[in-house]
């Protein structure tokens, strides 16, 4: 009796979430998938079957999409690595129990609460490519402290401009990564460090051989979370540099081709490719996480 009642209640309580996600996520992804296989160009819906044409065009016949892939790869590698290194560094720093820990912790966390738009607008000013008498932002700072060799044109740099976008992105998310690592560090029992110390390990050795291996699951989580953020990046680039072809990424291409150009079929195909790349990253991780959680 009670089990039956539980079952009904459970079903009813999950239902709203299932309906919401079923319709708004799966339903619309299905719709996008269908549109991606159509010839829809222009304002009026056109579901005429086009097979994989939109995909093959993008992947084999579209220089802009090649730029997008290249930019995404560069950005992702720099962004994820930067956040992991800086996040771990900050977490270990805070873990030393230094004075003013609470102050620094909130300082490091602050950027994650700010929108990518605000971050982008501030960093556009900081990464002002102007030099000479119009010098400004970070270039000015470098000039003042005598590090002239660091002065550069940031995101306006030809070919490698996208790398400069990783700087504000790392700024924004390294605190978040730090929080993940800090959580992981706090979960490591003190006995382990104590034991290593008794065995004569130095602090550096303890970190290298005891703590870092134990933080591997955190690193994995952080990589997945940061990786999917970087695949989806849109607002930050818009806010720093606007819609420039040199700094184009799939999400921006999708938006402009759909809403400025009315190429619905092509836009949908970009969205599906993006979904696929996020899924390849996220699904195995979720599967693993849910399974381990379910065993608890």
């Amino acid at each position: 009796m009670r089990i039956k009642r539980d079952a009904l209640l459970g079903f009813l309580m999950v239902l709203p979430s299932i309906i919401a996600i079923g319709i708004f996520v799966y339903g619309f992804i299905g719709w996008t998938g269908r549109v991606s296989l159509s010839n829809w160009v222009g304002l009026l819906p056109n579901y005429e079957w086009a097979g994989l044409k939109n995909y093959t065009n993008l992947l084999f016949n579209d220089p802009r999409f090649m730029v997008d892939i290249r930019n995404t790869v560069i950005f992702t590698v720099l962004f994820v690595l930067g956040c992991l290194i800086l996040g771990l560094f900050l977490a270990v720093l805070l873990d030393q129990g230094l004075r003013g820990e609470a102050f620094f912790r909130s300082l490091f966390l602050f950027p994650m609460a700010i929108s990518f738009i605000v971050t982008g607008v501030v960093w556009r000013w900081l990464m002002n490519p102007a030099q000479g008498s119009r010098i400004s932002g970070l270039n000015l700072l470098f000039d003042r402290i005598g590090l002239d060799s660091l002065i550069n044109s940031w995101h306006a740099t030809p070919t490698w401009g996208i790398a400069a976008i990783a700087i504000p992105a790392i700024w924004q998310m390294s605190g978040y990564t730090m929080a993940l690592y800090l959580g992981g560090l706090r979960a490591i029992p003190d006995d382990l460090r104590e034991a290593a110390r008794v065995d004569g390990a130095s602090e550096v050795e303890i970190y290298r051989h005891v703590i870092l291996p134990l933080l591997r699951p955190v690193t994995l989580s952080a990589m997945i979370i940061l990786g999917h953020i970087s695949l989806k990046v849109f607002d930050l680039i818009i806010a720093v540099a606007g819609k420039q072809l040199a700094l184009d990424v799939p999400a921006i291409y999708m938006w402009t081709t759909t809403f400025d150009g009315q190429f619905y079929g092509r836009g949908a195909a970009i969205a599906m490719l993006l979904l696929l790349s996020v899924a390849i990253l996220v699904i195995p991780y979720l599967y693993y996480t849910i399974r381990t959680e379910a065993e608890l």
Binding site: I18, Y26, W31, T32, V35, K232, M272, L275, I290
Partner: peptide
């Protein structure tokens, strides 16, 4: 709670934790 369809529900909801928003935007 224990009920039938619990694990599929869990997967169904959580699989979409990180999907890209552009995939549903146009629709």
């Amino acid at each position: 709670l224990r009920f039938r369809g619990k694990t599929p529900s869990l997967y169904l909801i959580l699989a979409m934790t990180m999907f890209p928003q552009v995939a549903v935007l146009t629709g």
